[in-house]
Design a protein around this nucleic acid. Structure first.
Lengths: 128, 128
DNA sequence: CGACTCGTACGATAGGCATCGTAGTACGGT
DNA sequence: ACCGTACTACGATGCCTATCGTACGAGTCG
């Protein structure tokens, strides 16, 4: 008792100070993982792995979640048979202020830019 | 006169609208390339490839610069025998406002954190 | 012209990684 | 106890890539 063990299974996470920028960037450079992180950010809470409908098999999904966890981008915890995922906002914001926000904003902008017809980019003036 | 052709050799660059966030992140997820970009940002101007003293061969250096150029992070132009490199600040800032700044700041913070003994994780005063 | 410097091209190599499929473990409900 | 669901572990596969070495093209300077 005492400690409300969510589950007997434990998952290794890097400490806040162990999170490396290069690994975070690498983790987010995969479209599938960036998509996961964006959904997680939009949900502002924990989501189970099975909540995501990705165009890959479950094996691959497990792989991507592990990369995100081991790079320090998300925190995972078992809750029954489900595995809940949450963004490590506080840790990332503390280590790299403004980065996560800028990344999410950049992803949203690019998404909007593409959806609204990729030729509507206007900005024809190339100052160079 | 008229058009001061810097050199006859031309180098392919992605248009501003063709720059993809995932590729930028992938380009910056390599320590060698992140280092190049940081030096470039600090120089606030153009730097020749040979200016950089990287712990890899020239072939590999050429490879990294090409990845950075093709991902839209830097702009390259020949000037005599030298190849000058410049950060595409304006394009990146237009596409992804705040991202480049946050990335450079993040890299600087991590660098400082590591240099000052990685156990001094304290950073107790974070206005956040 | 010849030599030298800067950077490229090409091939090789070794390691990483995204993906899959199958078999297996943990947990909750009936 | 049994079954179904959620996720994992492991092996295989094919692609990508960081690295090197060598040979070459482009410019500059004597």
């Amino acid at each position: 008792m005492t400690s409300p063990v969510v589950s007997s299974r434990a998952l290794p996470h890097p400490e806040r100070e162990e999170i490396r920028l290069e690994e975070v960037l690498h983790a987010l450079s995969d479209p599938m993982r960036l998509r996961i992180v964006r959904e997680l950010a939009a949900a502002s809470g924990e989501l189970s792995c099975s909540h995501f409908e990705l165009p890959v098999t479950k094996s691959t999904t497990t792989h991507h979640f592990r990369v995100l966890r081991e790079s320090g981008v998300i925190r995972q915890v078992y809750r029954g048979t489900a595995k809940m995922n949450g963004l490590r906002r506080d840790d990332l914001d503390d280590l790299f202020p403004g980065l996560l926000g800028a990344l999410l904003d950049a992803a949203a902008r690019q998404d909007g830019r593409i959806r609204s017809g990729r030729r509507a980019t206007g900005t024809p003036s190339r100052g160079v």
